[in-house]
Simulated scan of single mutants.
Amino acid sequence: MRSAEEIKAALRREFPRWSIIQSSPNGRWWATRGPDVGKLVQHGPSCFDADEPETLRAQLRKVAGA
Results as ranks from 00 to 15, higher is better:
K39A: 04
C47M: 12
S19P: 03
V37I: 10
G34E: 04
T55P: 03
A9M: 10
E6D: 15
R13D: 08
S19W: 06
R12K: 15
P25T: 13
Q42M: 14
N26D: 10
E14H: 05
R28W: 10
C47H: 12
L40R: 15
W30H: 11
G44I: 01
R28K: 07
G44L: 03
I7C: 05
G27Q: 04
H43T: 05
V41G: 01
H43I: 03
E14P: 00
G34A: 07
W30F: 14
E54T: 10
A9R: 15
R17I: 04
S3E: 09
E5K: 14
A4G: 09
G44Y: 02
P53M: 02
D51S: 15
R2P: 09
I21L: 05
R2F: 15
W18H: 02
N26P: 04
R2E: 13
P16A: 09
P35Q: 13
E54Q: 12
E52T: 07
S24L: 07
R2V: 05
K39F: 09
D51P: 03
E54L: 12
L40A: 06
T32F: 04
A31Q: 00
I20S: 00
R28I: 06
N26V: 13
R12D: 03
I20K: 00
E6I: 09
P25M: 04
S24I: 11
E54K: 12
S19Q: 13
G27P: 00
K39W: 04
Q42Y: 07
A50M: 02
R17D: 08
G44V: 04
R28D: 08
S19C: 11
S3Q: 07
A9K: 12
K8N: 06
A9T: 10
R17T: 06
G34F: 07
P53W: 00
K8S: 04
W18C: 02
Q42P: 03
H43S: 09
S3C: 06
P25E: 14
I20F: 00
P25N: 15
I7Y: 02
M1W: 11
F15H: 02
L56W: 02
A31N: 01
G34I: 02
F48P: 01
Q42T: 12
A9L: 10
A31C: 02
A4L: 10
T32R: 07
E6S: 08
W29Y: 07
K39H: 14
M1E: 12
R28L: 11
G38F: 02
D49H: 14
S19N: 07
R17W: 13
P53S: 06
I7L: 11
A31E: 01
V37W: 11
Q22V: 10
V37G: 08
A50L: 00
A10F: 02
A31V: 00
S46E: 03
V41Q: 04
S46R: 04
R13W: 07
H43W: 13
D49R: 03
R12S: 05
Q22W: 09
R12T: 06
D51K: 15
D49N: 09
R33P: 00
L11Y: 00
E14T: 06
C47A: 14
K8W: 02
W18A: 03
I7Q: 06
S3W: 06
D51N: 06
L40N: 10
E5M: 09
E5L: 15
R17H: 15
G27Y: 06
I21V: 12
S24A: 09
S24F: 08
N26F: 05
E54C: 11
N26K: 14
P35V: 05
